[in-house]
Amino acid sequence: MTDVTFILRDGSRRTLDIPEGSSVMQAAVMENLKGIDGECGGCLSCATCHVYIEAIGAGELPPIDEEENALLDGVAAERRPESRLSCQILATPGLSGLVLRVPERQM
């Protein structure tokens, strides 16, 4: 399991234990975490799972590929250098301790 903490819009924090290999977005949606919509179900076509990386665990995130980069150009909240789509982040033991901030809006 990988512990991932979300900083929600109201500033509160919620930590999820995510099974290895599951996407961060899937876990957030299954836990009804407010602010992560995941409308496309992780098919990389909606960008409603946008997050800001606050802190990374001991591992590294996979690099942003061309499709994710293109979708990040159209996110509803401000795109920042630390912007990622949570559907593209798979839980691994090295990412335990990952902290993600939910943006003010997804749409």
Results as ranks from 00 to 15, higher is better:
Leu71Thr: 10
Ala55Gln: 15
Ile18Glu: 01
Arg80Val: 00
Gly42Asn: 04
Ala27Arg: 01
Val29Gly: 01
Glu39Tyr: 04
Phe6Tyr: 15
Ser22Asp: 06
Ser12Ala: 05
Gly42Phe: 10
Glu31Met: 00
Glu60Val: 03
Ile64Thr: 11
Cys46Lys: 09
Glu31Gly: 01
Asn32Trp: 07
Gly74Leu: 14
Leu71Gly: 08
Glu68Phe: 05
Ser12Cys: 00
Glu20Ile: 06
Gly57Gln: 08
Ala58Asp: 15
Asp17His: 04
Leu44His: 12
Gly35Pro: 04
Ala77Glu: 03
Val51Ile: 12
Thr48Met: 06
Ser23Thr: 12
Ser22Gly: 02
Ala28Ser: 01
Ile53Thr: 10
Glu54Leu: 12
Glu82Tyr: 08
Cys43Ile: 13
Ala58Ser: 14
Cys87Met: 06
Leu71Phe: 12
Glu54Ser: 05
Asp65Arg: 12
Glu78Leu: 12
Cys87His: 10
Ile18Ala: 01
Glu66Tyr: 14
Glu60Asn: 06
Pro63Phe: 08
Leu33Tyr: 06
Gly38Asn: 01
Ile36Gly: 01
Cys87Glu: 03
Cys40Glu: 03
Pro81Trp: 15
Ala27His: 02
Glu39Trp: 08
His50Cys: 09
Ile53Arg: 13
Ser83Gln: 02
Gly59Cys: 07
Gly11Glu: 02
Gly59Trp: 11
Ser83Trp: 11
Arg13Pro: 00
Arg9Glu: 04
Glu68Cys: 07
Val51Arg: 05
Pro19Ile: 08
Arg13Phe: 06
Leu44Trp: 06
Ile18Val: 12
Val75Leu: 09
Cys87Gln: 04
Pro63Cys: 07
Ile53Gly: 01
Arg13Val: 03
Glu68Gln: 13
Glu82Ile: 03
Cys87Pro: 01
Asp65Glu: 13
Val51Gln: 03
Ile56Ser: 11
Cys40Ile: 05
Ser22Asn: 12
Arg13Gln: 11
Arg13Cys: 02
Leu71Gln: 09
Pro62Arg: 11
Leu33Asn: 02
Ile53Leu: 12
Glu60Phe: 05
Glu39Cys: 04
Asn69Gln: 15
Leu44Asp: 04
Leu44Phe: 14
Gly57Thr: 13
Gly41Met: 05
Arg9Cys: 06
Leu71Lys: 11
Asp37Phe: 15
Ile7Glu: 14
Cys49Arg: 04
Glu39Gly: 02
Ser22Glu: 07
Ala70Asp: 15
Thr15Pro: 10
Glu78Cys: 02
Asp65Ser: 04
Gly74Cys: 07
Ile36His: 02
Asp65Thr: 08
Asp10Met: 08
Asp37Leu: 15
Glu82Arg: 13
Val29Met: 00
Leu72Ala: 09
Gly59Gln: 11
Pro19Gln: 09
Ser86Phe: 08
Glu68Asp: 03
Asp73Ala: 04
Asp10Tyr: 14
